[in-house]
Design a protein around this nucleic acid. Structure first.
Lengths: 209, 209
DNA sequence: GGATAGTGGAAAGTATTGCTATCCATATTA
DNA sequence: TAATATGGATAGCAATACTTTCCACTATCC
């Protein structure tokens, strides 16, 4: 198929497809002439996937490229690759390293140790979490921390279910795709459900006194 | 205090504070002369809060302003106000209304009914969730849906704990602040913890065979 | 009391991001 | 053979979140 059909099949405008090709989110088609190329089902799939990461997952173009590259290049024989792809999905930030930050970092380390989680020191989620906790400290929302355990418990249970489902997949490419989609879109699903449950709970507790 | 101290106390650069004042994220100081104004502790708090929403919560300036305005203007006597502030924190998107979308919307309605959640039809999280689910359908990640229940269960349990903690607060302003912080920063905390738990679980399952 | 630095506010400028639009030589299709 | 489409390069554009510059004025230090 050529670019018009690729666009029709995915709903992505042609100029955007060209942009994604330029940016390396989608591999080039097979050239058949000076201004002709063929795209296949793999391109359709890859394009949908890229769009999902950007639109639903909120990844930047650069992060999406990196995540996709890592998942679908190295053959995924090593666990490292999965980890690195996940790392690529956590956007880098700058951190204010004050007292609140030091305490938050210690708190994250403590939590990980307490849970017995095997997590590399380089996992960027450590810093993101520390940053969020430091912010809560600076806002004097310290009672928030009572909830941290229940959040961690929740995350653990989710991860168990998720890993189990992913592991059921047959081929490696399928696992790779699931991991990428999962990580990015799962955040949004979870956040939405939390909003809905919150509305329900606050309506029950405060709405009908 | 004047703007320099406000900047020192919060770590926010002066030009950014001026920008936030212009954009209405922070109320104006008390004027004492043609080019002088006084700021107080309330301004410090509000500025930190605004920063947290923007930096950690990832809200746009416009969303942050709307959320803050709703929480701290109307007196919060009505439950509606809390709901509206939460709604303001869910960014609007455009939706592709195809077959996958229709099915996803039905699925969301079904889930809410099944759970017995009391959620207004106008809650934007409904659409965000439907959008995410529709994306999963379009990516043929249908087995994802087996997990939806466990996600919902999780969200419900979280909301229970959260609501309970917020309700313990004394004054209304404190509740308002907690709700805003909670909603925005909680997403990040949860997402980070999920990443960490995922690394642990995949290491255990696949890493040491 | 005079130099120096800081202030609030307005307006214009800037860096980044994620697309769109235009062009063009060549291909395909009606 | 005429209209339309293609791939690719380049330039343009709108939105966002600041930064910079300017100004008349104020506060503060020597």
């Amino acid at each position: 198929m050529r670019i018009a059909e690729l666009s029709r099949r995915t709903g992505v405008p042609i100029p955007t497809i060209k942009y994604y090709l330029r940016e390396g989110l989608v591999p080039a088609g097979e050239r058949t002439g000076p201004n002709q190329a063929q795209y296949g089902e793999a391109h359709v799939k890859r394009l949908k996937l890229a769009r999902a990461l950007v639109e639903i997952g909120g990844l930047s173009i650069a992060s999406a490229r990196e995540a996709l590259r890592l998942m679908f290049s190295a053959g995924l024989s090593e666990l490292d690759t999965i980890g690195k792809a996940q790392y690529a999905m956590t956007p880098a930030r700058e951190y204010v390293e004050d007292e609140a930050w030091d305490e938050a970092v210690a708190e994250v380390d403590e939590l990980i140790a307490k849970r017995g989680w095997q997590v590399k020191a380089t996992n960027p989620a450590r810093r993101t979490l520390a940053d969020a906790l430091a912010t809560l400290r600076r806002l004097d929302q310290d009672d928030y921390f009572e909830l941290l355990d229940s959040y961690a418990e929740t995350a653990e249970r989710l991860a168990d279910t998720e890993i189990e489902t992913v592991a059921r997949r047959g081929d490696l490419d399928s696992v790779a795709e699931a991991v990428v989609v999962w990580t990015a879109v799962g955040d949004t699903v979870l956040a939405s459900l939390r909003r809905l449950a919150q509305e329900d709970r606050s309506t029950r507790l405060l709405g009908n006194p």
